[in-house]
Design a protein around this nucleic acid. Structure first.
Lengths: 205, 205
DNA sequence: TCCTAGATAGCACGATCGGTCGTTCCTTCT
DNA sequence: AGAAGGAACGACCGATCGTGCTATCTAGGA
């Protein structure tokens, strides 16, 4: 056993790393995770390419860390605010609304991070795809749990297939993002909102 | 006025160009339209880079032509087969079914061409984005016309907002593609199918 | 107050990028 | 049959890609 004398990372390094990842997550929604190059990212945040690169062992590690950062932003901007609502059904509605708001507020310049990046890498087997796959799974599971809670609270028909309903609600929100970003039409988000509200009305017991 | 003495293109050139564009459209769903490089495309179809490149004045022209080719494939594989169905509502259903089948049959190795490529370029202003925007618009309009026809035939409630319904049907199909490609789960297509069928049942008068 | 490890920069590498040559081959038109 | 122009090629351009190595600086623990 070799006792590795761990030395704490320096605070300026931590700040740099955080700034790099924040910029990487945001730029990736425009350039893509592959299209985003180390050199341009370094220029963007005013650092040397090698100085930036030293924080990560490879581009893939940078991509994985950027996805983690994006997931944190997503949690803070979409999931957490929706916890405040009163009642199970209200929390589910708030979650969908919160997603549409996060798209409209352009938290990421290229729309929803995961929509932008998943389509790019869903055909590239590897650790990056795997992480995106798990995060999509987790998001759908979260929606499904919220549906289940509303069913248990007697606010949604317990006969509804929770997974199916979660799939459909997410379909509305994702389509709102896709049309909003490509067409530049805020009406798309309103369409998505009307869509999931009507679907929830049908599912009400 | 200078009379330009037009000379017909050679037939072998036409065949090459078609082969290039077919490969480009299919590879673009995996590598992306930007990620697809001239050199790799040339290797893939067994041609020299410069020989391939001579067919197009720039990479953007190649991208635009590949999108046209993909649109033709989409029409042949999705839109045309759905014309055969009997009755307006049946034609609408067949259109959605046809889309899901086109995804499942992996006409493009990376799922729906437009889903794969739109997310990549929706934040890059230019002719390519513009063309993708118009094609998305045209697809939504087609769905809306099919909805309108079913309403006129008395098979769908005329009180339904046709544009809204088209949006929601497309949301189901697009989400089916997205989950199928990323999770590799054919169940996603069944979910999409159940989703649009249930939505049409609600819209039935 | 030193000492050291972490943070950053400079420089260079091999590979590949989109794109342009000049040249040769071959199909088509006269 | 001969001329002409499209098709395809190999070589090459400058730029940029991801990725190393090395030197310098500086913050933090002793």
């Amino acid at each position: 056993m070799v006792a590795t004398p761990v030395r704490a990372r320096r605070s300026d390094g931590d700040r740099s790393r955080a700034a790099i990842l924040d910029a990487a997550a945001r730029l990736a929604t425009v350039e893509g995770l592959e299209g985003l190059s180390i050199g341009r990212l370094a220029d963007y945040i005013g650092m040397s390419k090698s100085g930036l690169y030293a924080h990560f062992g490879s581009k893939e590690e940078l991509q994985l860390a950027a996805i983690d950062t994006a997931a944190s932003i997503f949690t803070a901007e979409v999931i957490d605010p929706a916890r405040a609502a009163d009642g199970a059904l209200a929390r589910l509605e708030a979650l969908c609304d919160s997603f549409l708001s996060y798209v409209e507020r352009e938290v990421f310049p290229g729309g929803c991070f995961f929509a932008a990046v998943s389509a790019e890498l869903d055909s590239h087997p590897g650790a990056v795809k795997e992480k995106l796959r798990e995060l999509q799974r987790a998001w759908l599971d979260l929606l499904e749990r919220r549906v289940g809670a509303a069913q248990e609270a007697g606010e949604l028909d317990p006969a509804e297939d929770a997974g199916q309903l979660a799939f459909e609600l997410n379909a509305m929100c994702a389509m709102g993002n896709a049309v909003f970003v490509l067409q530049g039409d805020p009406n798309a988000l309103e369409r998505a909102r009307r869509g999931f509200l009507a679907r929830l009305a049908v599912a009400a017991s």
